[in-house]
Design a protein around this nucleic acid. Structure first.
Lengths: 333, 333
DNA sequence: TCAAAAGTGTTATCCTTACACCCATGT
DNA sequence: ACATGGGTGTAAGGATAACACTTTTGA
């Protein structure tokens, strides 16, 4: 009998908590031992072709069930089907199955504390510590990542070495190259290829029929691994969200109904992982006409009270420029 | 026994022929009668979980097999899984199966004439005649589409009617709204929802267990239908390509190794479906540094010979602005 | 009074848009 | 000579980036 196909739906559920971008994670239980996994995963579940009319409905249903949480904005990310990077062959009735992952991105304004067990909000710099440039260039890039990548590049034979070095340079902003915050997935894939992501060693061992390796004490510079291909899906989600910020008004899916402009800016910064220029951010923002001052003020800010704003959803229709540009800061401040 | 899942891979293979954007289409044969379908389809094939390591490899293999054509640039588009809009329930050994469509976009420089039977290059304005604004606003929008959509909108009860009208206006640039060439899929989906795409009637009938309806003489303004959900995938591909043009140098996947700047412009225009401003297109282009004059000239242009250019692939690495902006023309000329 | 955070004004620079014009070829 | 398409220069307007500065609160 031929291998069955099983479709697994995974969700990257993003929210902002205390100025940090967080993602909903679960600790899945081993079906045999009943023990919770040491590795985090994304909320996921199988797609049932008999019960579910669409992927999105299925996703909403099982995320609510697993995490007691209702999704708002949802979009499809990517479908992963590579052999060897899927979940371990699942036992489905008659035999082994090939698992195809359909990843989704979901945005939600308030990270309501889920009372569901083994469910948590995790900052995504836990999984991608090199992606946070808000405090300037992360030291771990030059101290840990760059040397490891250069070492990997020099092991390439012929001009393969040169190509590896080129990729490392442009993706991780080495030797004067510019940082591009959108290329999250490419960076993760480079680390995976270079064998620096713990998942790479695990997948390689499994392909050779070896037992799952012991959790190793790998450098924290390469981020905390996740089960299955979930970190790959998470990277896809972060990259997509960072890109989309600039051409669709998706930030407002992450904010409360009213917010101060500084809160909004901190939200964008948490997602994009870079610091923005305050004045220019505001100028750019009100040219879009997407926010409206309410004449009410938040006094809890520590200094001068900030005006509260709201998102004008009705303005959304015929605007041509539907996103926020990111007025970066290059020097200090 | 529960419904099996089958994964179908479909490819939107795009090329430029005589200044027109064309797409590779097939006429699939009925497995029972052996007759070629009256409707066109995209090249497609099932994904075999035993034989194929990745989707992309599977796709390349069967496109080459079906059409005797080798794909170059390939990217995943979207995975469709809606019940009722998939292919008719396929017979797979033991029982019925639910077909999940994974759509891909492929770009190829020369539309080599495929000698494969029932394979052809079709201009995509056959399927989306309202998408070509190079000769100005297509008359069929105001003569056929707008009246039909207004009629549909007025049938909505409550503020549903208002919402329908709003969508029609912004998507089809009615009542002074601006045309946004990227929203191809949303326009097709609107026509589908409004019951103006022939596929909608077909899917509706099938859901009720009725036999496939006779091919109707529907207005050509709504485009030629395709089998299964292939026109939806095609719309996704056109939209994605139009968007990507602006931020990645994908045009060069559609051009010959050397080209004149006018050829390049006509290629962009054929894809984007709008006329561009010649001088500004050139200025924008050479600021990117992506093309290089060769000092050789094409004398076949009819007027002054045009310089030949080539794409500088090596420049591709560290550029920040990797696409072409579209300097539109608003007035005549 | 001072620190902290909110909010305003102004300028130089760059990019986009639009317009006008010149160049090289075939008929 | 002139039609046809290729190619260049320049000036106006708008957007961006960077700068300095004022305002309002709490400690």
């Amino acid at each position: 009998m031929s291998t069955l196909i099983v479709i697994g739906l995974s969700a990257v559920v993003v929210a902002i908590r205390d100025g940090e971008a967080v993602v909903l994670t679960v600790r899945p239980h081993d079906p045999l031992t009943g023990e919770a996994s040491t590795l985090a995963g994304l909320p996921f579940g199988p797609f049932d072709p008999d019960g579910h009319r669409t992927f999105e409905l299925a996703l909403r249903a099982f995320v609510t069930e697993q995490t007691r949480f209702d999704l708002g904005y949802v979009e499809q990310l990517y479908t992963f089907g590579d052999k060897g990077r899927d979940a371990p062959l699942a036992d489905v009735g008659a035999g082994a199955a090939r698992v195809i992952s359909v990843g989704y991105l979901a945005l939600t304004p308030v990270p309501v504390d889920t009372s569901a067990p083994d469910t948590a909000w995790s900052s995504w710099s836990r999984f991608f510590p090199w992606e946070d440039w808000r405090q300037g260039r992360p030291i771990l890039i030059d101290e840990a990542i760059a040397p490891a990548l250069r070492n990997w590049a020099s092991a390439g034979r012929g001009d393969e070495g040169e190509r590896r070095l080129d990729r490392a340079r442009t993706l991780f902003a080495l030797d004067g190259a510019l940082w591009n915050e959108e290329r999250v997935l490419e960076r993760y894939e480079l680390l995976y290829e270079a064998g620096l992501a713990p998942e790479a060693a695990r997948d390689r061992d499994r392909a050779w029929g070896l037992p799952a390796p012991e959790p190793q004490a790998l450098s924290p510079a390469f981020g905390e691994p996740m089960i299955s291909d979930h970190r790959r899906i998470l990277a896809t989600g972060l990259g997509r969200l960072r890109g989309k910020l600039k051409y669709r008004p998706v930030v407002f899916e992450l904010t409360a109904p009213t917010f101060t402009l500084s809160e909004l800016q901190r939200t964008v910064e948490a997602v994009a992982g870079v610091k923005l220029h305050k004045q220019n951010f505001r100028r750019v923002l009100d040219r879009t006409g997407l926010v409206e001052g309410l004449g009410r003020y938040d006094v809890e800010t520590g200094g001068r009270p900030a005006e509260l704003f709201r998102f004008c959803r009705e303005q959304l229709q015929n605007r041509s420029t539907l996103g926020l540009s990111l007025p970066l800061i290059r020097d200090g401040s």
